[in-house]
Every structure is written in C-alpha cells, then in structure tokens.
Computed example of a mutant assay.
Amino acid sequence: MSDHEITEPVPLTDDRGRLNPASIGWARQQLHDTDGVGRGCYGWGRTKRWEYWGIVTPTHIFALTIGGLDYANVRQVWVLERATLTAIDAFEISPLGRGLSMTGTHGAGVNTSRGRTIDLRFEDSDAGTRLLARTPRVQVEVLAETRPGHEAMGLASPHSRFLVDYTVKDVDRPTTGTITIDGVRHDASGFAVLDHARSRGPYRTDWNWGAAVGEVDGKRIGINLGGGGPDGLRNGISHTGVTIDGRVHKIPTVLEWEFDPSNWMAPWRMTTDRMELTFTPFYDRYARTNLLLIRSTTHQCFGVFTGRVQTDEGEWLTIDGLEGWAEDVHNRW
C-alpha cells in the first residue's frame, strides 16, 4: 500500500459498510466521509468510535474521552496536577449506546456522553471545538481553537475488505478557558491534541503513539508520532507527521520506537530518516482495565522532547523542550 494523499472528498465505505479502496491514504483536511462505518452485519462488535482530547497547560495536564463500541461505551476525565504529580481519574462504562451520541464524520456537529457521574460534550464550530466536562470534582470549559489554514492528518488504513481504521490526528490546537478542581478555578491556556477515530477493526489492537507541541525559532510546531503493527506502520500507512505553522509535513517512512518496558521513566527514542527524537518522561500514567470483553493496558508517559525533524523542503529544525507524551497501548475490545 502506498502513502497516498487524498485531495478530493471520498466515502470511506460503500452502502454496505465495506471498504472503498479509493479512500485508502491520508488527507490534510477532512475529506473522508465516514458515516458508513458500522453498516452491514459483517463485523458487528468491531465498530469503534473515539474522541480523545489531551490538553497540556503550565499547571495541569488533562484528558477527556468519549468512546463508543457496538456493545458498550466509555467516558473518562483524567487530570494531573503538575506541581504535585497528583492525579484525579473518573471513569464509567455503560452497555450499548446508553447516554451516547456521536457524529458519523469528523467535524459534523456534537459528540456527547452522559453517565451517572460524568458528562462530556464536544461541540465543533468554525472557531474550534468547545470541550465541556463535568465530574463530582472536575469541571472543564475549554475552547480548542482552529486557526485559519490549519491542517490535520486524516488517515484511512485497511485491515481487510470489511475492517478499516480511520483516524484524525489534530495537533497544536491552542486552548483558552478554565478547569475547576474541587471548587478552585485554573486557567487552561495551553494546547490540545485530538485523536479521533471512526473504525471497524479487529478485537486486538496494539500501538504506540505520541504528540508534542511548542515553538522552534519562531515557528509553531506540532508533532504526531505514529506506530503500531509488526512493520512499524498502521496497515501499511505511516501516521507520523509534523505540523509547522498549521501546515502538515507528512513523513511516509517507518518510525522506529526504542523504550524499556521494565523502566518506563528511562528515555525513549523515536527515529526515521526525517526525525531523530529523544523523549524524557516525568510522569507515567499507568492504566489497566479487565471487564470481560474489554481489556486494556496502557503506559502513557508525559515529558519533554529534544532532537530534530525535517520539513518537506529538506530543512532540519532543532527540537528542544517540546512538551507532550508517548504511549504503549495493548487493547482487547
């Protein structure tokens, strides 16, 4: 499979939910119509709809998740206070689609998830995405801004004629707003990263993923680190790229990951012919779930990146002190 750029609108699937071969590749704008994901009886139980927002500010790191599977849905609000490295975690799971409403295609409206103690609402508009969350201890009111000309990688990578992954990796979304913890309000100015998925995939999924944002020589840099699969790609397509002042520079080659599973706080290395990065963690977010059909093990480490990346024009940019995360995930769902 080639790392083909999609430049015209295209449906991801046909009317019966089968993969449209013309959709395979990546786009720098939202050109894939994913409304057909989940149609047809083949592969029921394999549909996965996902909205994950990771937000980094000088005082806090927090993550908001809405996830919809055919047989269950999950919602989560996780917050880390950076000064003390104290975490707050609120998680719920509900059967089938109870309390859940998700768009078929990215940017098409509102995604909501309501449970017993957690409410989440993500509203898309021309100005950006308004992120609203409420738990007994945490309240989030944040706008993840979309600046004129901003690009994000949309990627369609197939497993078979019927099973296909579609994700959007949208890095470097400036944030404004507040996060309130136990009644104390904090400024939430920083950056947000979106991991959006509309997929019908296999039961077992394993991957590495990372993101980082900051400024380099007056340029605004957002890095998306792709991985997963035995060949270092996601079903033949690289998920690695760099956004520079809002423009995507796609890296089609395999990203090699080096880390020590016996010591997650040791430095990580990520390299391709156009990227040489060292990641130094300061916090390991470990999560393990075992709920019959749903099983997951995650090490998501937060830290600082140094090294260099190369633009499409061949210029090397030095990376020094960009904040972000890198993760190792093993899911059965």
Rank of each mutant, 00 (worst) to 15 (best):
T7F: 04
E8S: 12
T13R: 05
D14V: 09
R18V: 03
L19R: 11
A22V: 07
Q30K: 11
Q30N: 12
H32R: 07
G36W: 04
G36N: 14
V37P: 03
Y42H: 09
G43E: 00
R46W: 01
R49M: 09
R49F: 08
T57S: 01
I61L: 15
R75K: 07
Q76A: 14
R82C: 01
A90R: 11
E92I: 02
S94R: 15
R98T: 11
T112V: 05
I118G: 01
D119V: 10
L120E: 01
S125P: 03
R130T: 11
R134N: 06
T135E: 04
E145G: 13
L163R: 05
V164A: 12
Y166D: 04
T167M: 07
T167F: 08
V168A: 05
D170I: 00
D172V: 12
T180L: 02
I181Q: 08
R185P: 03
R185Q: 12
A188S: 07
G190D: 09
G201W: 13
G201Q: 15
D206W: 15
A211Y: 11
A212I: 09
V213P: 06
N224G: 14
G228W: 10
G236S: 01
I237M: 06
G241Q: 10
H249M: 02
T253L: 10
L255M: 07
P261H: 15
S262K: 15
W264N: 15
M265G: 04
W268M: 00
R269D: 05
E276Q: 15
F279C: 00
F279D: 00
Y283K: 11
A287S: 14
L291N: 07
L291A: 10
G307F: 00
G314F: 09
W316F: 11
A326M: 06
D328H: 15
N331K: 14
